[in-house]
Design a protein around this nucleic acid. Sequence first.
DNA 1: TAAATTTATGCAATCGATGGCGATACCTAT
DNA 2: ATAGGTATCGCCATCGATTGCATAAATTTA
Lengths: 352, 352
Amino acid sequence: MKIKKEVTIYDLAKELNYSPSTISRALNNHKSISKKTIKVIKEAAKEMGYRPNNLAAGLRNNRSNTIGILISRISRPFQASLISGIEETARKAGYSVLISQSNDKYENEVSNTNALYDSRITGLIVSLSMETVDMSHFQKFIDKGIPIVFVDRVPDNFNSYKVVIDNYTAGYSATKHLIEQGCKRIAHFAGAQHRNIYEERKKGYLDALKEYGLPIEKDLIIHFKTLSFEEGNKATKKLLKMSNPPDGIFSSNDTAAVSAIMCAKKMGVDVPHDLAVIGFNDDPIASIVQPSLSTVSHPANKMGAICARRILDHSVQNYDTDLSEITVLGTEIIVRDSSLKKVSVLESKQSR
Amino acid sequence: MKIKKEVTIYDLAKELNYSPSTISRALNNHKSISKKTIKVIKEAAKEMGYRPNNLAAGLRNNRSNTIGILISRISRPFQASLISGIEETARKAGYSVLISQSNDKYENEVSNTNALYDSRITGLIVSLSMETVDMSHFQKFIDKGIPIVFVDRVPDNFNSYKVVIDNYTAGYSATKHLIEQGCKRIAHFAGAQHRNIYEERKKGYLDALKEYGLPIEKDLIIHFKTLSFEEGNKATKKLLKMSNPPDGIFSSNDTAAVSAIMCAKKMGVDVPHDLAVIGFNDDPIASIVQPSLSTVSHPANKMGAICARRILDHSVQNYDTDLSEITVLGTEIIVRDSSLKKVSVLESKQSR
DNA sequence: TAAATTTATGCAATCGATGGCGATACCTAT
DNA sequence: ATAGGTATCGCCATCGATTGCATAAATTTA
């Protein structure tokens, strides 16, 4: 097969009798090139099918107009939305997006970090793997002034940009909601406690219990490894078989919450009356399961957009590695059927 | 903030008193460099924190070891799994992955195509946008010998690599399954007919009806624009209000199928006894909805892996643009509750 | 021991785009 | 008409890695 030669600015230069510099400047709308010349050059470029070589420009400028993403799993709804938000924002600004997934393994995170570094990305957006504790693989970015934005699963021992939701308040509100619905013994599906998000959700849960004078029972706090459907099933079964089972569950994600609902139904436990359930994330499954799952909604797409903005707006001049710039987003409790023990205020008023 | 200087092969060369050529060759395990030298150089490289500059290498070699992905929406479960499969395979081979989404708009597809081209990707994996008809924006890749793999939503007027499932057989089998369950009037939720996947699913549906001597009723074939939840709701409502409503629905995706189930339940129509439903894709919601949704499962992750392999194994020498190399994957009918009118063979035997 | 190989390494050009600095032509004001 | 501006544009070095060709050293063969 015959391969067409690439059209470069040199070809354009020869064709139009200009120097390559002028071609380059014209294509970049440099002010020292006359409008007429710019027009001529751009038209010829289009005509001849010229396409810039980002590798060459990137090498010369030492930047690639590329944002790197490092997440655990693309196929999780939250992370997919996050990527989507990043991609849209980046694309609009003329940036490309490199993705990589760690599958929640530290080892993959390290090697992907290196691969992204080698591609000379403009900035890096990271949601930490479940395993990550040591953060030294990120140091090289800092040393080079390449901004890192940690999102959702962020470290607390590393200064950088961070974009998170208020997990504490979300956990507190979710628990409070269950309490207000009349729950007295609320269980919690907790995630790995070295990851901020799970730790804070749990803290919110604990504080809500305290606030309302409910006892904290160790047996009702289940520590999950992955918050999977299977784990949720097992935990729910165990909880419901207790002599004194809980009347509410606050789960750190929707997958486990949905499994709890389905497990309870199978065991003949009525949701929400015998067991109210609230999840976290507002995944698509939340509104499909019956009874529909109350949950905490994450502005995932928006978080992605903010992360990308952070990179795009980053200026090396003001980069201060001694502090973290944290963006905290609010969440929203989505009340559906799985937690509605009482008729709503509105309905109760009407029924008088 | 102070920015650390990059370590290059020139720095290594100076430090070790070798020429940059030797450094380069040593790092790439070139055979003409002695093992001893390679070891020394590699150790020094690690020591000094050397990291290759992919931009420079890419410019020189005119290839970037990067695979470009162009899909419609990352946040659709099927596409997310597809990306995941691509990423895993590419990463293992030392390739990076650039993503972009068209949001099903032709215009975005064209501009993203250009952006990916400018990044000098090694190959391109595409699932066409809903709108795409004209294919000329892909020509420049062909001209340069850059392989394109179309996946799932593929063109039929453009020669290239293609990776698809057997949509016709899947549509046929899904319909046949409903017929075997005793359905006599089966409706079909069809997608945009200029996209192969929807066209073929419909063909399979039609042929199954013919095969079993069932009449084809135009009123029972609904052409959707996006196969969204809302569209599904509207269509189902309309169908069930007919004087002679259908007793089965074969939907071209799960979202619309789930909406049909939920709508039917709301209208007091029993699923599956009054209305059997089967979807397509096996999204997570399929196993959550009640009754659980029978569907056609797609090997999304595997498809992604195959696409990536196609790019990695591509050899310019044998690239024949006059023919298409098509990989067709099988699908599987997942029978759940939404289509099970009859007790299964196994159960009926046991009940004797 | 001289010649022929083999092994190990260096020289220098190259990939395409960019931008500092300098050069030229054209204008305006005095 | 001359000095000082300004608008346009070209020369050339540069970014970091790669590789064909040449060369030098070590080893084998005749």
